[in-house]
Design a binder for these strands. Structure first.
Lengths: 253, 253
DNA sequence: ACCGTAACGAACATTTTTGATGTTTGGAAG
DNA sequence: CTTCCAAACATCAAAAATGTTCGTTACGGT
C-alpha cells in the first residue's frame, strides 16, 4: 500500500468515527505504530485531524470542503480528461486566466509549454508553470494564499484581475446548477471568481459531475454567465439539459 | 563528484575557452560522454550554453550576470551567514518585503515558520514559504517572473508594492558603493527595488563582499537610503568605511 | 548528390542515492 | 507509574543518476 493510500484510509477512519487510537489504526492499515504516528503528524499539519495522546480526532466538519491534500488524488483521471478537453478549447496565442482548484491545476499543467499567456490563481498552478519554456508566458497575480489550498484571494488578487483582460477564463466551481447558479465555498473565493468573470471574454467552467446540481455557500452568479461547461459522464442528465436550455454549451469529456 | 559540481566544472570550462568538445569535457570530468551530453542538454535548457554537434559554446557574455542556476550554489555558506544575521535583525510580528536574488532566498528560508508577514519578490522564495505553518503569513505580489531567475517585475509588481507598507525591506543588490550608490542589472529590477524602498520604513541590504564597490547597469538610488548593510568578511574595508561614513550601519556576518 | 564517419539519442543494465518504514531506547506526559 | 512519544539507528524499496550498447541521423569530403 502506498503512503497516500494509507493516509486516505486513516483520514477516512478518523472522520467516520470521530476519532481513533494509534494501535487501532496500526492494525487497520497493517503498518507499525511509529508509521501511524508519523502519518498523523502529516495529516495534522494538513489540518485534516488533531492529535491527542494515543490517537487523533477529526477536524473535518460535515458539509465543509475536505482539504486540498485529500482532493488532489481523488478522481484524477476524470479531472485529467476534463482538463484535456478544456485545453483543446484554448487556442494558441490566447491569454488565459486559470482559477484555483484541483481540476484547474490539471488544466494549468496541460498549458505548460504551449504558446499562451497564463495567469493562474493558485500557488500550485504557478509552481507547475514556473519552469515553462519560452513560448509560455506566466503572469502572477497578487494575493494571500489560503493555507493548504494555495488559492490566491483578497484585494491584491482583485486588483491584479481588474488591471487585465483575458480571452478565456477557466473556472472551477464548488457548485453549479441552472436554478441556483454558480456557487463557491466562501465569500473571498466568490469575489475572486466574480472578478475573473468580469475580466474575461469567454467563460469556460470545468467541473466533474458531482458539482452539478449542487449548491455551496457563496453565490457567484447565474449559470448563464458560463459560456461553456466541460464535465464528465457522471453529470446528471436533467441538470445538463437545464444548463443547455439556459444557453451554456456543455461538453462531456 | 556530484552532478552540480560537474555542471559547474563544465560551465566553467566552456565559458573559459568559449567552447569545448564532448570528449574533452568527458576527460576533464572523468564522466562518460553520454553523461556529458545529458549535462550539456541541461545547461543548454538553462541558457548557460548552446549545443553544437560535437560540443557546446558559451552563451555567457562577460560582464553579464551568470544565470540563476549557477549562482545558487556559489558561496552558499557566506549567503547563509549573511541571511542569518539579517533574520536576527527582524523582530517577531514585523511585516517584511524580501527582494529577489540568491541571498534573499536564504533570508526567506530562515523566515519560514517565524511569526512575521512576508512578501517575497521571487517565485523561488514564494515556493520556499508556501508550506509555512500558521504563524507565518505569506503575501504574494503580482508580476511577470523572469525566466530562470523567478524575479517578479513589471506594473503588477509595482502596484502590489504601492498598495502596501512594510516595517522592513530586505534588499539584494548587484552593486553597492558609497560613491555610485545602489545598482541593479536591469531597469525593471531597479524599478522594483525603487518601489520597495518607497514602501518600507527600514531598508536592510544583504550583499556579500563581492558586490561592494561594484557598479552595475541600472541605478536604484544613493547608498544613504540603506539603513543597514549585512555583508561578509570579503568586503573591502575602504568601501565599508565609506558606507559607514555615509550613515549606513554595517554588520559583518 | 552520394557515401563514410562521427555524433547523437533511445533503450536497457547497473550503480548510487534518497526516502520510507521498522526497531530500539531514553525521556516526557498523563 | 504506566503509557505514549520521538530521536537515533538499521533496513528496505523506490527513484535517480550513470554507463553501455546499438540503431539512426547529421555533417564533411568527394
Amino acid at each position: 500500500m502506498s503512503s497516500t493510500d494509507r493516509h486516505r484510509l486513516i483520514a477516512q477512519a478518523v472522520a467516520d468515527s470521530g476519532s481513533a487510537t494509534v494501535p487501532h489504526l496500526a492494525e487497520l492499515t497493517g503498518a507499525s505504530e511509529m508509521t501511524i504516528r508519523r502519518d498523523l503528524d502529516v495529516l495534522a499539519a494538513q489540518g485534516v485531524l488533531e492529535r491527542f495522546r494515543g490517537g487523533a480526532r477529526t477536524l473535518l466538519l460535515r458539509g465543509e470542503e475536505p482539504p486540498w491534500s485529500l482532493r488532489v488524488h481523488e478522481g484524477l483521471e476524470a479531472k485529467r480528461r476534463i482538463a484535456a478537453e478544456v485545453s483543446r478549447l484554448i487556442a494558441d496565442g490566447e491569454t488565459v486566466v486559470v482559477d484555483s482548484g484541483t481540476t484547474c491545476l490539471e488544466v494549468a499543467r496541460l498549458l505548460h509549454g504551449r504558446p499562451v499567456t497564463v495567469m493562474p490563481l493558485s500557488l500550485q498552478a504557478i509552481q507547475a508553470l514556473s519552469d515553462a519554456p519560452a513560448p509560455t508566458a506566466l503572469l502572477v497575480p497578487g494575493g494571500r494564499p489560503r493555507t493548504g489550498e494555495g488559492a490566491l484571494t483578497g484585494p491584491l488578487t482583485l486588483a491584479s484581475l481588474a488591471a487585465l483582460r483575458f480571452d478565456t477564463a477557466v473556472l472551477g466551481c464548488c457548485g453549479l446548477s441552472a436554478a441556483e447558479g454558480m456557487t463557491a465555498y466562501d465569500l473571498d473565493d466568490a469575489a475572486v471568481k466574480h472578478a475573473i468573470v468580469a475580466s474575461a471574454r469567454r467563460i469556460v467552467a470545468a467541473a466533474d459531475g458531482s458539482k452539478l446540481g449542487r449548491t455551496a455557500h457563496a453565490y457567484v452568479g447565474a449559470s448563464s454567465l458560463v459560456d461553456q461547461l466541460v464535465t464528465d459522464g457522471s453529470a446528471p442528465a436533467d441538470e445538463v439539459a437545464a444548463l443547455e436550455e439556459a444557453g451554456t454549451v456543455v461538453t462531456t469529456a
